[in-house]
Design a protein around this nucleic acid. Sequence first.
DNA 1: GTTCCTCTACGACGGAATGTCGTAGTGCAG
DNA 2: CTGCACTACGACATTCCGTCGTAGAGGAAC
Lengths: 121, 121
Amino acid sequence: MARAPDLERRVLDALWRGGEWSVRDVHLDIDPALAHTTFATVLDRLHEKGEVDREKVDGTWRYRAARSREAALAAEVGAVLARAEGAPDPLLVAFLDRVEQVDPRALDRLEALIQARRQRG
Amino acid sequence: MARAPDLERRVLDALWRGGEWSVRDVHLDIDPALAHTTFATVLDRLHEKGEVDREKVDGTWRYRAARSREAALAAEVGAVLARAEGAPDPLLVAFLDRVEQVDPRALDRLEALIQARRQRG
DNA sequence: GTTCCTCTACGACGGAATGTCGTAGTGCAG
DNA sequence: CTGCACTACGACATTCCGTCGTAGAGGAAC
């Protein structure tokens, strides 16, 4: 069978939609053709990594994302930035390109955020 | 022996400093305690992935980074952004946090870049 | 209670990435 | 010829991760 790329990420994407999920919920939502235990394993491993929290209710685990999607992605961006030496213009430009492409009005908000930050000093 | 984390990344970091590198150069720069062939292999694999270019001079390979550090990191940031739905404020804020921490004056440049972009429309 | 069904717990297999090295061979410098 | 420096190629172990099987617990339905 075709090995799914990024199954973990698809599971996280589901949990990031919010609420509590049983293994069954995730299984049905993502791909009922795969085995139940596949998702049990993936969720278990995400729990070991601290990406999701869980709580046992009536003998079954309820999972929820440990961080919001924004927080998780922000951490990833932060990790990349940490490897840059300084904040070179080409990187800033690439960032603006992407942001604008994904949401043109985000540039306005970005500018407002910069100014707000400056006020606080 | 302790398995080095991110040996590939450390090799790339070296090449990103610029110029042409032989296997020997990289070997001596990063960790002379490891075997010469370790670096030959790593560089070969980076070449297969297109991360580095190489050219044979007098029977020995000269390696150089295929992209600048900024271009490579920008691509990584872009990949993260592509997974965000839109450009949510928390992500923008996290980005600003990092940028400011690494280079406080970068916020000014960022603002200037946004304004320049708006002019062009 | 026996039969189902649903879960968990635990382990396992296989493929890919990657850190690490050995060996054989080639070509140039003494 | 003898070294030395490099390449070419292969190999092994570990880790990550997609995928699943099996065994067992616990409740629901006959």
